[in-house]
């Protein structure tokens, strides 16, 4: 009877014995090789947004949490969580609440050369990615500095804050953008940068060629006429220590955001216009007024 129920008693006994032995080894090693882990790491990780975007400079949220607890890293490095998560972490770590990073940075696109205003130098039929196109003779557009429009930045955004508009230029949604910098790293042309979110003035060009060379490929690039620089010097006329916040370097206007006071004087004088927001430039306003007058007639 017993033999029918258990045809091989020895195998049952030996397997049980092996199981018990391994079980003992595992439980002993769990006690002996226990790794002490700070429970605060888990809590800090919960306080972080969990986007794993890398904006703090660490490979992901878990790495940042570990370093906050173990190596006493700054707690306000996460631009995504901002003040909220910094305060939560401060509470966990028993530190003083300091709020988020001083300035909320937003991604800004420095190009307005969509397909309607730029010229192509050849037809491209390779992989539809900016990096692939950029490394093939500088991309299909005449301008070797501007946006290629294949959307590497859009794909890289973990927060769905970037979208291609109809002209093939990425548009940043300032509400969704957390300033993590994924798009800045993804763009092979370096036309996206992180700019103080409170400042609206922005040079929408990255072309460092002379005006006539640039004009061959794009109708809306910086022509380096220096009108913006002159206007800005006028603003800071009685503060010679500042001089100017916008300056032409290598045939391209560049704004020093530590000096810019958001006065829109450079925007108004730009003849192209290439300084954002272009609606405020005199040329655009004049055009709009004319259009209105024409429609009124």
């Amino acid at each position: 009877m017993l033999e029918i129920l258990f045809p091989s008693l020895s195998s049952i006994v030996s397997l049980t014995a092996i199981g018990v032995a391994f079980g003992l080894i595992l439980s002993i090693s769990k006690l002996k090789l226990k790794v002490e882990k700070d429970p605060r790491i888990e809590k800090v990780l919960e306080a972080l947004p969990g986007a794993n975007c890398g904006a703090c400079g660490m490979p992901g949220c878990a790495a940042y949490a570990t370093r906050i607890v173990e190596q006493k890293f700054e707690i306000n490095l996460c631009p995504v969580g901002g003040a909220e998560s910094a305060d939560a972490i401060a509470e966990i770590m028993g530190m003083e609440k300091t709020g988020g990073a001083a300035v909320a940075l937003k991604a800004r696109v420095h190009c307005q050369g969509g397909i309607d205003v730029t010229r192509k130098k050849f037809d491209y039929s390779g992989p539809m990615e900016c990096l692939a196109a950029h490394n093939l003779m500088g991309g299909p557009k005449m301008c070797e500095y501007g946006c290629l429009g294949f959307g590497d930045c859009v794909r890289s955004c973990p927060f769905d804050a970037l979208h291609m508009d109809a002209r093939g230029i990425p548009v940043v949604d300032p509400v969704k953008c957390t300033g993590c910098g994924s798009c800045v790293r993804a763009c092979p042309r370096g036309i996206i940068s992180l700019v103080d979110g409170t400042i609206d003035v922005l040079v929408m060009c990255r072309n460092r060629e002379k005006g006539p060379v640039m004009k061959k490929g794009c109708a809306v690039g910086c022509i380096a006429c220096k009108l913006c620089e002159k206007a800005c010097r006028e603003v800071f006329k009685d503060r010679p220590e500042i001089g100017t916040a916008i300056e032409i370097r290598d045939f391209l206007a560049e704004i020093d955001y530590s000096k810019c006071i958001n006065c829109f004087k450079c925007v108004e004088v730009c003849p192209v216009p290439v300084i954002h927001p272009i609606e405020r430039s005199k040329k655009m306003q004049k055009g709009a007024a004319q259009a209105q007058a024409a429609s009124g007639e």
Partner: peptide
């Protein structure tokens, strides 16, 4: 398929 271009792209991406 532009296979060699894709391989080149993978090299560029890895280097980056």
């Amino acid at each position: 398929r532009p296979l060699s271009h894709f391989v080149r792209l993978s090299q560029d991406r890895l280097r980056k």
